[in-house]
């Protein structure tokens, strides 16, 4: 009896666990519909460049990172060397370090096995819905099951969507130009991230350098343009901050 009570205090009852899990699923569900086309395009794009179906599905399971999957496929399709593909994908995925740092304290009491699983399941969407709820001060049990619900629902939707794309892509003729859906998807992801003048400056600089430097060997123009965009963004931000301080001082 006593052991049971200790157990339920630390891990929650089966009912409360299910409740928190379902709350996580519900929180992420409006986003799920939006990722279906993105996932389907990822699957289609992979088979369009000639990847075997099994490998395309394995890629989605192993990488489980939409933008990096699409960028890798686009670069591989263009014949870029492996090192450039890896470098570009890693730069795109560096943002996960931020989410990891932000969630780290909330998962501190979990076992290493749960931490390892939660790290694999970390996505933009699972992070976004969880961190908002965690800031309301949930218990450790509630945080664990809420995140698990949100993250696994997103994982399942992503995998189903890419698998559908993989099987669909094999039947779509090249004249449909579905490869164009890849840059279109990137646009739809980039535009909402451009929120202020420094981020707009970064986007313009990166776009211009990528086009201007398209003649660079090994598709180095992408990573060069990304570096240029980040540098311009940081400089624009520093300039904006200086301007702000000057105005404050004049007041």
């Amino acid at each position: 009896m006593r052991d049971d009570r200790i157990d339920s205090a630390a891990h929650g009852t089966a009912d409360s666990r299910r409740g928190h899990f379902m709350a996580g699923v519900r929180a992420v569900s409006p986003i799920l519909l939006g990722i279906v086309p993105f996932a389907t395009i990822s699957g289609i794009a992979a088979v369009e460049i000639g990847m075997p179906k099994g490998l395309a599905i394995a890629m989605s399971m192993i990488m489980f990172a939409g933008a990096a999957q699409l960028a890798s496929v686009q670069l591989l399709g263009a014949g870029a060397p492996g090192a450039i593909v890896v470098l570009t994908a890693v730069v795109i995925n560096l943002r996960f370090a931020m989410y990891s740092a932000s969630l780290g304290p909330h998962f501190q009491t979990l076992s290493a096995r749960w931490k390892a699983l939660f790290a694999y399941l970390l996505t933009d969407q699972a992070y976004a819905v969880s961190i908002i709820r965690f800031q309301d001060g949930l218990s450790a049990v509630a945080r664990k099951w809420f995140y698990f619900g949100a993250a696994i629902a997103l994982w399942a939707t992503w995998q189903a969507g890419t698998a559908a794309g993989v099987f669909l892509g094999a039947t779509v003729p090249a004249s449909w130009s579905l490869d164009f859906a890849v840059p279109l998807t990137f646009m739809a992801l980039a535009v909402p991230a451009i929120r202020d003048a420094p981020s707009a400056a970064a986007a313009l600089a990166a776009g211009a350098v990528a086009v201007g430097a398209a003649g660079m060997p090994y598709h180095l123009n992408i990573i060069t343009a990304a570096g240029a965009g980040i540098a311009v963004g940081l400089m624009a931000e520093a300039a904006a901050n200086r301007h702000e301080r000057k105005r404050e001082a004049e007041k």
Partner: peptide, 8 residues
């Protein structure tokens, strides 16, 4: 600035 640079 990573997403707004890499994606464009």
């Amino acid at each position: 600035f990573v997403p707004v640079s890499v994606l464009p």
